[in-house]
């Protein structure tokens, strides 16, 4: 059992949890993930590590409540409660070096895993340009935290309710077009956002790292459900990734595989909402 040390709402259906897991907190690095399971009937949910605190033994994760399990977590798991399973860290850590100037692009929930990477890049001596975006202002979070670790921060919303109106790929293109020397780009967010960002950086031949959130069961290399095509090769996002060269990822396959359980996920969510009396 793993205790929830803290819970905080970051936006509509976006919550931050700090889970007590000292062994994981001691070693987890930016880019890695954990797998959690709420209870005996629960599924294994992979979530990227956002922050760790060696003193309290806390590991921070951010959860967007898009399905039954994550809704249930938001509705019923409070600070002081416990979750059944918490395993990690899993996956390969981000390659943090001094690349000169880097751009960190985060879309939606992707801002959460991007934050520790941006911070580590800053600590490694990089000039960090942050570009973060969401559909609207209420879905933006961690702006202060990103601001603290970025030399420049550009905020985008689809509807213009905060920052500039438009997609994160627009300022990305502007910066690259300006001729500024960029050593590397990290782009983390929905598959489509990573695909578009990688298309932009490919034009300028800037190495680009993306973090793939494919469907996983165990998260430890055993099921192969998370396999993605990188160039001509099938790779497992869990043990070979989750970060890959964005210019070589088959994003269409990733998106197709992410949708495979759409009907079952909808059915589970519907059943849950009915049982909670939240839906007729």
């Amino acid at each position: 059992m793993y205790k929830i040390l803290g819970k905080r709402t970051l936006g509509p259906q976006i919550r931050e949890y700090v889970i007590e897991a000292p062994e994981v907190a001691r070693v987890a690095k930016p880019g890695q993930f954990v797998v959690i399971r709420l209870h005996e009937q629960g599924e294994r949910i992979p979530l990227t590590v956002v922050d760790t605190d060696r003193e309290s033994g806390g590991v921070t994760i951010v959860v967007q409540e898009v399905g039954k399990s994550t809704r249930e977590m938001g509705d019923h798991f409070e600070s002081g409660d416990t979750i059944l399973d918490f395993a990690g860290p899993l996956g390969v850590a981000s390659e943090i070096e001094n690349y000169g100037t880097v751009i960190c692009v985060g879309g939606g929930l992707g801002i959460a895993p991007l934050y520790p990477i941006a911070r580590a890049l800053k600590e490694a001596g990089n000039t960090v340009i942050g570009i973060v975006g969401a559909r609207s202002e209420d879905l933006l979070f961690y702006i202060d935290r990103m601001d603290a670790v970025c030399d420049e921060l550009i905020v985008m919303t689809d509807d213009g309710s905060a920052g500039r109106k438009g997609f994160v790929s627009e300022p990305l293109r502007e910066i690259l077009s300006s001729g500024r020397k960029i050593g590397r780009v990290w782009a983390i967010g929905p598959a489509i956002m990573m695909k578009v960002s990688a298309q932009v950086t490919r034009e300028f031949n800037i190495p680009t790292v993306v973090s793939l959130n494919s469907v996983m069961i165990d998260g430890t290399g055993m099921c192969g459900g998370c396999r993605v095509e990188i160039g001509d090769e099938a790779k497992f996002a869990c043990v070979d990734g989750p970060e890959f060269d964005g210019h070589r990822v088959n994003f269409d396959l990733l998106m197709s595989r992410q949708r495979f359980y759409h009907d079952e996920e909808a059915c589970a969510l519907d059943r849950y909402l009915k049982s909670e009396g939240k839906k007729e």
Partner: peptide, 17 residues
């Protein structure tokens, strides 16, 4: 693994489909 470990044969009672 879906079927045995995660008991997907009892979905949606169990969460893994």
């Amino acid at each position: 693994t879906r079927t045995n470990l995660m008991r997907a044969f009892r979905f949606p009672e169990y969460d893994t489909p």
